[in-house]
Design a protein around this nucleic acid. Sequence first.
DNA 1: TCGCCCAAAACTGTGCACAATTTATGATCT
DNA 2: AGATCATAAATTGTGCACAGTTTTGGGCGA
Lengths: 238, 238
Amino acid sequence: MSGLVDTSDSPEPPRSGPRSMQVADQLRASILSGEIAQGERVNEAHLSVKLGVSRTPTRAALHALAAEGLLDYETNRGFTVRAYSSESISEAYEIRAVLEGLACRLAAARANTHDITARFEAALIAGDEVVTDFQNTPARMEAYRRANVAFHDAVITAAANQMLEDTLRLALARPATSLRNIVSFTENAVRRRHDDHHRIHEAIHAGDGWRAELLMREHVTSVKLVMSEELKPGRADR
Amino acid sequence: MSGLVDTSDSPEPPRSGPRSMQVADQLRASILSGEIAQGERVNEAHLSVKLGVSRTPTRAALHALAAEGLLDYETNRGFTVRAYSSESISEAYEIRAVLEGLACRLAAARANTHDITARFEAALIAGDEVVTDFQNTPARMEAYRRANVAFHDAVITAAANQMLEDTLRLALARPATSLRNIVSFTENAVRRRHDDHHRIHEAIHAGDGWRAELLMREHVTSVKLVMSEELKPGRADR
DNA sequence: TCGCCCAAAACTGTGCACAATTTATGATCT
DNA sequence: AGATCATAAATTGTGCACAGTTTTGGGCGA
């Protein structure tokens, strides 16, 4: 069980599957990039001619994105792009915090299989390499991004709860909530978050479910706070 | 914002909307009643002729139910009824516990509006009436069911977090997880659960988020344990 | 008899035309 | 002018035919 979130780069590799999937991918990108304004109504006919397919796969794609929470749907009134305020992004992190906390508690309650331990250690070692001799370069940032995704993937795999995985995937599908969004790539911030990962794994490995849960909740909450700070208006960096 | 779960009775009032919605309702009932076996593949063509509609609304309904988590979907291979073991039901309760716990914490952090307080008190008074002069009759059980739904609805409303509401609705859409399934309608069990509700509201009203969260987690977990006990094989009651 | 491969059947994906509903437009009355 | 209602335009819902993929079944050879 790999990709809880996709580990690919920004230009998504155009999926080969059915057109409806391709349309969904294109649309998702358009929404996440803000190309389509929040709250805007999406017209099936216009969209289908723009993408060069008929309305049928377009409708399928729209329903799929509605299931992901990116669109709202009303009977006989079509789809609208769901609006995500900075408050709603905080709300999404709150949900991530309790769900990933639960995942840690469940993971700790299970026997440590060799496979799971190996995945944790691979993710942690990958993170160690970024932290040791830290450099703020795009390549290192991408390496840390991958290590981060690998760690959180390992947690949800170790929890072995299919419904939790589904629920969490939905929460991560929201704009600005994805694991791929690394905030604050400074040495101190990265060291701190990576140390969190080590401690969380220690607690899971030791079977201390409550400690693992609390550590993960704190970990995600601290990321939320940093994210909220960066989203505040009046910042002109980047 | 009312029905997080529907408060209607077993024979769902046949919705008047588009055919695809009607089909979805019928299918949902068929799946929840076990009429369609778990793991069974669902054939679009057969289903559409059986229900007297074309394949188009049938497909829409199937995708909708897949979004609810009742069906699995694979490209070019169609839909299958998702299997829910007793373990997965426990897993669903774990998720409910942390999500409703979060809802309580958020609710406590907000100012108590008159509207919210009124909803809580209405739900609690309705429960009081069942507990006072307890009788194990279908009518009383239905009354308690409604009071229970009203209370949990009030919590999620008070949390004022749209994404949390959506996520929770998904968790409650699973078989045997719905709030409508009242387990163990004995005097002691009902008194105990109703007392939990009172204490949770006290904590929320007092602004004690952590206490409210812990109480709700314990509340849902205790229901999970009762449910797990009832689901154990070898019980011949009812 | 067992396994492999290929063709046919079954099933899902897509395009397109038409029906039903919603939204926009403008004429009429006060 | 402003409101109201009927009519037209736009948009979504449904039916159906055909294309692409998967699954089934049978024939062939070892």
